[in-house]
C-alpha cells in the first residue's frame, strides 16, 4: 500500500522548467531590477519628460553611483540573456514553449483572463496570452540592449545609432523599451500572484499535476 502511494506521488510531479531556464530567469529578474532602478536614477539627472522617478525607488544614491550599477549589471544582463537565448534556440525550448503565437488566440486568452476564466490546469504549457507576453518581453529586452549600446557608444557604434535616429533617438527608444519591459513585468508578476503555484514551479522546476 505504502509502495503504491509513493509511485502515485512520483507520477503526480511534472517537470516544467529546465534548470538553465530557472537559473537564467532568476539572474535576469535580479539584473533587470538593478538595471531599471539605476536607469531611473540616471533618467532623473536629465529627464526626457515632465516627471522624475521617486528617489526612494531608484538605485545608486546619485548619478555617479547609478551609472556604476548600470554599467556593471549590463554585463550580467547580456551574458545571462545570451545564455538563455542560445539555450532556447539550440534546444528548441523557445520554439516548443512560445510558438505559435496566433493573434486571435492571444486576444481570446486575454479576454478570458480578464473574466477570471483562464485555465491554468497544465503549467507545462503556456497559454496564448503568456506566449505573447514572454515573446514581446524578450524582444523589448533585446531592444533595450541594442538601444543601450547606441546611447553608450554613439560615436564608435554610430552606424547602429544612426539606424535608431542618432543619440537622441536611441535615448527615446531606450526609454520606451524600458517602459514596455516594466509594464510586461508588472503583468507577469500580477499573474504569478493570482496563480501562486507558478512561483514554486520556477524555483523547483516541478509542479504537482491536479487531478
Amino acid at each position: 500500500m505504502a509502495g503504491m502511494q509513493m509511485t502515485e506521488n512520483r507520477a503526480q510531479w511534472l517537470s516544467v522548467h529546465p534548470l538553465v531556464v530557472r537559473m537564467t530567469h532568476w539572474i535576469n529578474a535580479l539584473t533587470v531590477l538593478v538595471m531599471v532602478t539605476s536607469g531611473w536614477r540616471i533618467y532623473n539627472a536629465s529627464p526626457l519628460f515632465d516627471f522624475t522617478f521617486p528617489a526612494a525607488i531608484t538605485l545608486g544614491g546619485w548619478l555617479g553611483g547609478a551609472l556604476l550599477w548600470h554599467f556593471a549589471a549590463m554585463w550580467l544582463l547580456v551574458t545571462n540573456g545570451v545564455t538563455y537565448l542560445l539555450y532556447g534556440l539550440l534546444s528548441g525550448h523557445l520554439r516548443r514553449k512560445l510558438w505559435p503565437i496566433k493573434p486571435d488566440a492571444v486576444l481570446a486568452d486575454i479576454l478570458d483572463a480578464l473574466r477570471g476564466r483562464l485555465s491554468h490546469q497544465d503549467l507545462s504549457l503556456y497559454n496564448a496570452a503568456q506566449r505573447a507576453v514572454y515573446a514581446v518581453l524578450i524582444l523589448a529586452m533585446i531592444s533595450l540592449v541594442i538601444s543601450g549600446l547606441a546611447v553608450w557608444k554613439p560615436v564608435q557604434l554610430q552606424e547602429l545609432a544612426s539606424g535608431l535616429g542618432g543619440y537622441e533617438g536611441a535615448r527615446r527608444i531606450h526609454f520606451a523599451a524600458m517602459a514596455l519591459t516594466v509594464a510586461l513585468v508588472v503583468v507577469h508578476v500580477s499573474m504569478v500572484l493570482l496563480v501562486p503555484r507558478t512561483l514554486g514551479a520556477m524555483i523547483t522546476g516541478r509542479i504537482r499535476r491536479d487531478s
Binding site: L30, L33, L59, G60, G61, W62, G64, G65, L68, W69
Partner: peptide, 17 residues
C-alpha cells in the same frame, strides 16, 4: 561630501536589494 554620500548610497542600494 560627495564621496561620503556615494559610499552611503551604495550601502543603501545594496541593502535594499
Amino acid at each position: 561630501q560627495r564621496r561620503l554620500f556615494l559610499r552611503q548610497s551604495l550601502t543603501l542600494g545594496a541593502l535594499s536589494l
